[in-house]
Every structure is written in C-alpha cells, then in structure tokens.
C-alpha cells in the first residue's frame, strides 16, 4: 500500500475525537462570515486611522499609532486564514485578500504559503519546522524576540534575497522547483510596490505612509510577536499535536482581531476548517487538545516560568 502520512486530523478521526460527517460539516465553506468580519474590520481601521489624524501634533498620536498598528499587524491573521483557503469559499478571493495583507505587513503571500505548509508538516520539530520560534533560554532572549528586531531582520533579508533571485537550500526544501520564479517575481513586485509608494510620497510631499502605515506596523509588531509566541513556544518540541500546540482562551476583541486563530491547536488538527467554525470545533475537541485557560497572558506566564527555571 502506498505510504500515507498520518496527519493530526487522521489521528483525531481514528481516535474518535470526531466523525467524518462532523468534520465535513465543520469544513464547509462560505463567503458570508468573512465578508461580515471584513466590514467590521474596515470600520475598526477607519476609526483607528481617524484617531491618528485627530491626534496628530499632540502626545496622543503615540497611543493612537500603537492601537492602529496592533490592528494592522493582525492582517497577518487574515493572510494566514487566506493561505489555508478557509477565509472565503471563493478560492481566488483568498489569493486577493492574502496578497493585500501581505503587502501591508511585508509578508510575501506565495512564499508564506509554502513556508507555512512546512510548519504544518513539521510543527515544533527542531531543524524542520520552518516557523519554529525557539523557546528563549533567558529573559534577554525573550525580550529581544518580543522587540521584533530578529523578525524584521529575517524578513528584510529574505525579501532582499528573493528580490536578487536567490533561494537558499532551506527555501528549496519546501518551494517546488516549478515555483522558484514565482517566489522571485513576487519579491520583485513587492519591492516595486514599496518603491512606488516611496516615490508617490516624495512627489506629493506627504508623510502619510509613515504615520498611518509604516510606523504603526513597526509599533504593533511586538504585539503580534507576543501572540505568535503563545501558539507553540514553551510547549514540548515533539511531533504530538495534543501537546506541542497551545490554544488560548481570549476575549472577543482578540478573537475578532486574530480571526479566531487563538483556537490554534484546533486549527492544526483540522487546517481545512474555516475560522468561523473553529469555536464549534473547539467545543468538540475540548479535553482532546491543550488549551491555556488564561489566554495570551497565561501562555506568557508559562514561558516566563520556564525561563526562570532554566535561566542561569
């Protein structure tokens, strides 16, 4: 018999955590929930944009840009949902939305899709998981990661490398040969887009892109780093999905912003289940997966507790 990879969902079905019919119902797609959430998203973005405009020239502009930045960096959550083709039923709508989000947060959509596939194949396995965030061994490492400096450094060098037409052996492990040129041209188009924004800003002598986009994204990114850490950091670095991933119980505002990606273990079990069905899937998998009841803060308390024990 041809060798099948035993995925987390196959395991969950075999262990009776849910049935095929239940899974099929959870996986069913619709454009409606994403369109409704996008409408809310645009209202929130308009409000935070207005807050910056209204506070320009005052000290309030700093918190306004920070809040706007926290919303902007959550375009990652929508992009992530789109890269699984679960945000919208209409498949191309996921590509369109994913690419727009990618431009906002400088994350090439196609490349991210391939990289993220590998993360789902090798979740939490050292040397194989392309997105693994290593457990900090000291407070210094913890704060350095949260500063986002290592993240931006890695992303800028990745974009530059692809722009120049170079893929590393690590990239080639998960990007199919047929797609090398797509990845290179994606990076070039992104750089061209940023250069056009820069040229228009100079031409119209405006700092709008800085105030309403770039500075807020940089200010908000540590929040996204903190959230991304809660998904796996501090959990065992083993192949067992029951333990290597953390779901987080968080309030409705965070759930709205992260497109329900706080249900992270549920998502890893069944990556074809759209964001709007994750709360129901979570009820179904209650007790089967690992959930942090105190949410993001609880997850960071766990990490800091582990650092306290290992730190010299």
């Amino acid at each position: 018999m041809s060798h099948l990879v035993r995925t987390p969902i196959t395991q969950a079905l075999e262990e009776g955590a849910l049935t095929r019919r239940e899974l099929k119902a959870f996986m069913s797609r619709s454009d409606g929930p994403a369109l409704i959430r996008l409408a809310g998203w645009l209202i929130v973005l308009s409000m935070t944009t207005f807050a910056i405009w209204a506070s320009l020239g005052t000290g309030w502009v700093i918190p306004a840009m920070f809040v706007h930045g926290v919303v902007l960096v959550h375009h990652f959550s929508l992009q992530h949902e789109c890269c699984h083709y679960t945000a919208f039923k209409t498949r191309w709508a996921n590509d369109v939305a994913g690419n727009i989000c990618g431009l906002i947060i400088m994350l090439p959509n196609r490349f991210f899709r391939y990289e993220h596939c590998d993360h789902h194949t090798h979740t939490q396995i050292h040397g194989k998981d392309t997105e693994i965030i290593e457990m900090p061994q000291s407070y210094k490492e913890y704060w350095l990661y949260l500063s986002s400096y290592p993240y931006w450094k890695a992303k800028f060098s990745e974009l530059w490398r692809h722009f120049k037409g170079h893929l590393t052996p690590a990239d080639k492990r998960f990007v199919p040969r047929e797609e090398y040129s797509t990845i290179i041209w994606e990076a070039r188009l992104m750089v061209a887009f940023y250069l056009i924004v820069f040229a228009l800003s100079v031409y119209f002598q405006t700092f709008a892109a800085l105030w309403y986009w770039l500075i807020p994204v940089v200010m908000g990114e540590p929040v996204m780093r903190a959230i991304r850490m809660t998904e796996h950091v501090g959990r065992p670095t083993v192949a067992d999905m029951k333990t290597n991933t953390r779901s987080n119980r968080v309030g409705p505002v965070w759930r709205f912003l992260c497109w329900n990606m706080n249900y992270h273990a549920e998502h890893h079990y069944a990556a074809s289940v759209p964001f709007h069905a994750l709360p129901a899937l979570s009820k179904k998998l209650d007790g089967y997966i690992y959930t942090e009841p105190d949410g993001y803060l609880g997850a960071h308390k766990d990490m800091l507790g582990q650092i306290k024990h290992t730190s010299p």
Binding site: H3, L4, V5, T10, L23, S28, S272
Partner: peptide, 9 residues
C-alpha cells in the same frame, strides 16, 4: 506530501 485525501474537504 502524502496526506490522506479521504480526510479532506
């Protein structure tokens, strides 16, 4: 990568 399509959508 060899996953079981029978568990897919």
């Amino acid at each position: 990568a060899g996953a079981d399509l029978c568990d897919g959508y």
